[in-house]
Design a binder for these strands. Structure first.
Length: 172
DNA sequence: GCCAACGTTGGC
DNA sequence: GCCAACGTTGGC
């Protein structure tokens, strides 16, 4: 058998077509909170400037994937609503906008480095707080809850999604 | 390719 | 505001 080098541009290690996947996406309520999503219906998930998070949007997300809308960097962090992926990834316009806080001077118009998807509201929920999530044995595996995790977009397993749904259904 | 310095994230 | 953890940058 011959070993084949892992090139930089091999297709991602997951199937192209798959059942619905689930994600946790962090947003600072001071920037875009659940009430903004309620008001707007859907938002462009701009401003992601981390390659891993970008690759999730670009390579793995599919329209219809479930999203836990998570409030971060705030007094009460936690899941504030359910949402869903509403578009494929497309170039994030703010990278080219010198006036934007997300401006990236290294981004070239022809070859954008940053993309975003659209995310649309499914429903606002009660705030499922981070501390409540941490008390759930079934959620100790959640990537977003791992020590040191800073990724703003992380995958959620079907089992974790179920647990969160049950917690939200049990107490509104 | 190593790795120190630096910047950012995000809970507390 | 603190600070641990992590990603990125850039000199070598």
């Amino acid at each position: 058998m011959q070993l084949v080098g892992r090139g930089r541009h091999l297709p991602p290690p997951f199937p192209v077509t798959h059942a619905v996947a689930h994600w946790l996406m962090k947003s600072e309520p001071g920037e875009c909170g659940i009430d903004d999503l309620v008001r707007l219906g859907s938002v462009a998930w701009i401003g992601v400037r981390n390659y891993q998070a970008r690759n999730f949007m670009r390579d793995a997300m599919q329209v219809g994937d479930g999203v836990l809308f998570y409030h971060s960097s705030c007094a009460e962090p936690g899941v504030a609503g359910l949402a869903e992926v509403a578009s494929a990834a497309y170039p994030d316009a703010t990278q080219f906008d010198a006036a934007s806080p997300y401006h990236d001077p290294k981004a070239q118009a022809g070859t954008p480095r940053w993309v975003n998807v659209d995310v649309k509201l499914v429903r606002k929920t009660r705030l499922l707080t981070l501390s409540e999530m941490r008390q759930q044995p079934a959620l100790v595996t959640m990537q977003a809850l791992q020590r040191g995790n800073r990724l703003s977009i992380t995958p959620v397993t079907a089992a974790e999604w179920h647990t969160v749904s049950a917690l939200l259904a049990a107490r509104r």
